[in-house]
């Protein structure tokens, strides 16, 4: 069985985001980059499948030079080999072109049974690429998986997802694409020595120049900021005004039921009148 995991490098969840000078992107100075947390679930799931079935796990990352660090992290978690599609401006290529590039590479690998990816990227909050890859490859897909079950003999996968009021179970036959949601597993720690060791694993670096764009129905103009089918005009960082209002009640020195009730009423009032959320 051959599994491809799509990984993306995103800013750290704790990163303090600021807009860049032109106001239409983020300022990357001082940002710590990490493996997109949802992709971390995808890598972990692939490695667990590998542990159970002996599947081969190929890590596929797309992005500038720095994304290599992320790819190595995924290798340290247990990937067997990796492909890095490199383009310094890649971060700004839109999901349509990105999906086409990835799909082409997957086709080139050949005989891929399963593609795993995080349900979305935490930077752009976009969940577009994986599903477009599936569309591009014309294979079935199931998103937001919280549990998967592989049937090796039948070459199929059962995917469970949380939907409002219940569970949805979809069975897909290979080749298929699945995106992962929090809760599907507990990702393991990629240690520094592990990342160091991962340097010995096979890594294929592909520059965008080496890809025949015409064949994909793309031109160089479709890549990068200029070619994007959407434009970011302006980035605003919301100002958060945190204020704390403690409503007393239910304290051991205020056990009177009446007081608790009063506090609860007070809370409801504030939520309704001030916060206007109920």
């Amino acid at each position: 069985m051959k599994i491809v995991v799509l990984v993306r490098q995103t800013p750290d969840t704790e990163a303090q985001i600021t807009a860049n000078s032109s106001g239409n992107g983020i300022d990357e100075t001082g940002i710590k980059w990490i493996l997109n947390p949802f992709d971390e679930f995808a890598v972990e799931e692939a490695v667990q499948i590998k542990e159970n079935t002996g599947a081969e796990v190929i890590i596929l990352g797309i992005g500038p030079e720095r994304a290599l660090e992320t790819i190595r992290t995924a290798l340290a978690m247990g990937g067997d080999s990796a492909i890095h599609i490199k383009d310094e401006n890649f971060g700004d290529t839109d999901s349509y072109a990105t999906a086409k590039l990835i799909a082409a590479k997957i086709k080139a690998i050949g005989d891929v049974d399963l593609i795993l990816a995080g349900k979305k990227w935490i930077d752009e909050e976009s969940g577009q690429v994986p599903i477009q890859v599936a569309a591009e490859l014309n294979i079935p897909q199931a998103t937001i998986a919280t549990k998967v079950d592989i049937d090796e003999a039948a070459k199929s996968i059962k995917v469970q997802s949380e939907i409002e009021g219940g569970q949805r179970i979809i069975e897909l036959t290979f080749p298929a694409l699945v995106t992962t949601e929090r809760g599907i597993n507990e990702p393991r720690y990629a240690s520094l020595p592990g990342i160091m060791k991962a340097k010995k694993k096979p890594l294929e670096e592909v520059t965008v120049d080496a890809i025949n764009l015409e064949e994909l129905g793309l031109t160089a103009e479709n890549l990068g900021v200029a070619g994007s089918r959407y434009k970011v005009d302006n980035i605003d960082i919301p100002v958060i005004n945190r204020s704390l209002n403690v409503l007393k009640g239910g304290n051991s020195d205020m056990v009177e039921a009446g007081e608790v009730q009063a506090a609860a009423e007070n809370l409801t009032k504030l939520l309704r009148e001030e916060a206007k959320i109920i």
Binding site: E14, I34, A76, E186, P187, R188, Y189, A190, S191, P193
Partner: peptide, 21 residues
């Protein structure tokens, strides 16, 4: 165990943050 990448759970984030921040 940890250096072979066997550690799971909440401490994974802790180590990642120690590394990054």
């Amino acid at each position: 165990l940890t250096m072979e990448g066997k550690m799971k759970g909440t401490a994974v984030r802790t180590l990642q943050k120690l590394g990054s921040h």
